[in-house]
Design a protein around this nucleic acid. Structure first.
Lengths: 150, 150
DNA sequence: AATTTGATTAAGTATACACTTAATCAAATT
DNA sequence: AATTTGATTAAGTGTATACTTAATCAAATT
């Protein structure tokens, strides 16, 4: 399970408006179209994106569609982002070797790795990275880092 | 203040990886490029997007740039999304008139507006919207709804 | 001062995306 | 059964985006 489609879904202003509107009231597609000043077709396509992100379910009732935003999915995303903010800075493990001058901008100390005098001085040609092949093992809070590309 | 640029910034997989990586360690651009398997230029451009979303600050130290993710901005976004999830369903105020058949999919009741028999039956030609010009006054938790378009 | 080098910007490209109008679908009405 | 109608899909368009390589910038080294 990845939240990537949800990030995408919420990256568009119009879709965020749709989400907000649907949280407050029921709206049929044409009503949303009128409020948002776009075509019904455009609304339909936005709703599709929201559905694919599992943020929205739809059900036909009589003439109209009734949509329902999954608030729990929104909360899950909020938690993921909050978890991201709480991700701890990782101390160098030692596998970085003598080349790591891993100090944060605030703490002003090194992490046990050798550093030569000042921050990233001439001697320190590499800094703050693991040995090749290890540094991308950093874990995301929930969704794992995918292979590549959007 | 709007968080729109932050939604955009986080909508890309590679950028979310960059954020995660920078939260754990310092990385110079070329190191990020190696880890992410893209050009340094591409990384630089991603960093620019993150900066424009105020998620990232950069400072040159000696040879290298040191980047810093603003965790508080991430938390602010998490709160906004959480607040969105908590947005309460708005009862019709009456201004919707007789045309509103505003019932949620779960509660199964109307909201005081006239409804004729069943949900959205033939008589109810419009449903769940305010009178023209009022229904888009629904408020977002933090960021106000912009004029239009992404 | 000239050179090196990490980072950014410029220019170009292929794809993704947010729309449009027109056509299609399907449930409800007549 | 034919029609109406709200919603979706098809097809097309212009813009945004995520990359590339090449050129430029600026700090640090020589």
């Amino acid at each position: 399970m990845s939240n990537a489609p949800m990030y995408r879904a919420l990256s568009d202003d119009t879709r965020r408006r749709i989400v907000t509107l649907l949280l407050g009231h029921n709206y049929c597609v044409s009503e949303l179209a009128r409020v948002l000043q776009v075509s019904e077709s455009a609304v339909s396509q936005h709703l599709k994106v929201l559905k694919e992100a599992n943020l929205l379910t739809g059900e036909k009732r009589g003439y109209y569609m009734h949509y329902d935003i999954d608030r729990e999915k929104l909360r899950a995303l909020a938690r993921e982002i909050g978890g991201m903010a709480d991700l701890e800075r990782q101390a160098c493990t030692g596998s970085e070797g003598a080349n790591c001058g891993c100090h944060t901008s605030t703490e002003g100390t090194d992490c046990g790795c050798r550093k030569s005098g000042d921050y990233c001085s001439g001697e320190v040609k590499f800094f703050c990275h693991g040995t090749p092949g290890t540094e991308d093992k950093v874990q995301l809070p929930m969704s794992p880092v995918p292979s590549r590309k959007e």
